[in-house]
Design a protein around this nucleic acid. Sequence first.
DNA 1: TATTGTTATACTCTATAACTATA
DNA 2: TATAGTTATAGAGTATAACAATA
Lengths: 150, 150
Amino acid sequence: MRYANDMPKTVPMPVGTLSSSLRLAVVRLNRCLRSQRADPSVTLTHIAALNTLDRFGPMTPGGLAAQEKVQPPSMTRVLASLEERGLVARAPHPTDGRQVIVALTDAGTKLIEEVRAREAWLSQRLKQLSEEDRETLREAIEVINKLMET
Amino acid sequence: MRYANDMPKTVPMPVGTLSSSLRLAVVRLNRCLRSQRADPSVTLTHIAALNTLDRFGPMTPGGLAAQEKVQPPSMTRVLASLEERGLVARAPHPTDGRQVIVALTDAGTKLIEEVRAREAWLSQRLKQLSEEDRETLREAIEVINKLMET
DNA sequence: TATTGTTATACTCTATAACTATA
DNA sequence: TATAGTTATAGAGTATAACAATA
């Protein structure tokens, strides 16, 4: 038995099919987001890290890696690139000499605000949706975030 | 003005904030999906391509690249790997000598069915959600697919 | 001349293993 | 001995540019 994406709502789609559909949609949207960036000099990975620092404030590299769902060495590389460009700054942890506190610089804050304002591709498409569709996405984001926490 | 993910529903979140939240959620879920595969011998990119061939049937490499939202040379590499492992087969186009038809082999069909049955990580988490949350995801997948078509 | 697919090449993204410094 | 972070290394993922074959 096969299910298309536009199957009638009265027939509950099994979890296995939902899993496949969700995986495909996420993989493809991720590709679109990577290729359709307004500013090619800042990668999607960089934007995501800057965004998280902006939302949650200064944190350790390990904490940021956990938030971003990557391994610590991957975050080390991202932070090295961001620091080289003056978008983040490292400061020693006040009480633990092993840890480091990473924070956005003024340039980093400015950049993330610019990116948010200009996000051409995705924002344009979101604007073309109905308010109901946007509400569905907002709720789905909460569900996805809940999904990843456990 | 800043918005957290759990902001009250009565205040409409602006499109810019929705855009940022959606981007973060998709990037992170994509990372989880890549790292949490049940069978490490088949990559997420391979699974996605096999899945699309299974759903839509045989198609050209160009058509598959368009469906998967990658450039043709990227799909060439994916197909080379899948063909080497006997999961897909190329056949000449009946009327156009430039084109090629790619189809799942029996081994490819079997593999994608196994993957679907076993999808440990994502399916487990989806099962733990409420039926309402799963319905939200189903609707969001349709919205995302609509978003990418334009 | 336009289209389909491929080859060549390079860069981004991410991981595991091993190392350093501090607790 | 355990933890935080980094370095070294390698593989997956993807793109652009250039090429070959066919329409």
